[in-house]
């Protein structure tokens, strides 16, 4: 199976830098193994669905409240600057673009990084240090398939769904603020909010969140699988899952936005 990424002994450059590159190599292998095993039967459909439900349900409350508050507060904070141009009627389309293109995918994914990523890292990490993963292996069960493939599929599928959901909740928060100040009706608000949003915008957000969801699953599992040094290591696995996922999400966001920019609306 996978060897721990930490090493002692002689180093090529320095301990940290060496471990960083070893980590990248191992993570690449881990990711390739996912693509190798995901298409080979038996498919753990039941376990995948169970993970979808568990991971999605777990973050629902947090995402609902955060998305609602973000939509509302963002609208409220944007009002004065638009008002100084006498342009408060642009608020719906302005927040529509902000929520759908940027806020929903990013905020939802970052919350999932904290909530789901750390959960996967800790759960698999503790299975690793208590030899439960070895126990699967000796019972002729493929732990990678049962634990990793199912979770990565679940996050890759659920995060985009949560992004759609949080986008709608965010717009609802924004609508309540707009309605309170400008008495705009729901239909007019929604019409305006989506006036600057095309298929490309929605598709771009969805594709980005597929990447983010995949990142959350694969990093959480990788950190869990490479956990060493007992209970202390489990804490470290959870923690470094979140840090690594957040870093990668920002990196992917920068690259993917660059990629999608030429296709965006007007």
């Amino acid at each position: 199976m996978l060897s721990g990424s930490q090493r002692t002994g002689k180093y090529l450059i320095s301990k940290n830098l060496d471990n960083f590159f070893i980590d990248i190599r191992e993570l690449t292998r881990f990711t390739l193994q996912f693509f190798k095993e995901v298409f080979v039967p038996p498919y753990e459909l039941q376990e995948t669905i169970r993970q979808c439900y568990k991971l999605g349900y777990k973050s629902l409350f947090l995402i609902t409240s955060t998305a609602f508050i973000t939509g509302m507060v963002f609208t409220d904070h944007s009002r004065p600057s638009l008002a100084s141009f006498g342009a408060t009627s642009w608020l719906p389309s302005f927040t529509g673009v902000a929520v759908i293109k940027a806020l929903a995918p990013l905020i939802t994914s970052l919350i999932c990084a904290g909530k789901i990523g750390s959960n996967i890292g800790a759960e698999i990490g503790s299975m690793k240090v208590t030899e439960q993963i070895d126990a699967m292996e000796v019972s002729a069960i493929n732990p990678f398939k049962y634990l990793v493939v199912t979770r990565v599929l679940a996050t890759t599928f659920m995060v985009p769904l949560l992004v759609i959901y949080s986008g709608l909740i965010g717009l609802l928060g924004s609508f309540i603020d707009v309605h309170r100040n400008d008495q705009t009706s729901f239909t007019v608000f929604m019409y305006d909010a989506f006036s600057k949003i095309g298929y490309v915008e929605i598709l771009s957000s969805l594709i980005r969140s597929v990447f983010f969801g995949f990142t959350i699953g694969i990093i959480g599992c990788y950190k869990g699988f490479t956990t060493t040094k007992g209970t202390e290591g489990v804490g470290r696995a959870a923690n470094s899952s979140v840090v690594t996922i957040m870093f990668l999400i920002f990196l992917e966001e920068i690259l993917l936005v660059k990629f999608f920019n030429p296709f965006y609306y007007g």
């Binding site: 759960e123 208590t130 030899e131 126990a135 000796v138």
Partner: peptide, 13 residues
């Protein structure tokens, strides 16, 4: 082959 782990390694979930 059966294997009994030193700390049992039962699946705690």
């Amino acid at each position: 082959i059966g294997f009994l782990f030193q700390h049992s390694a039962l699946y705690d979930s």
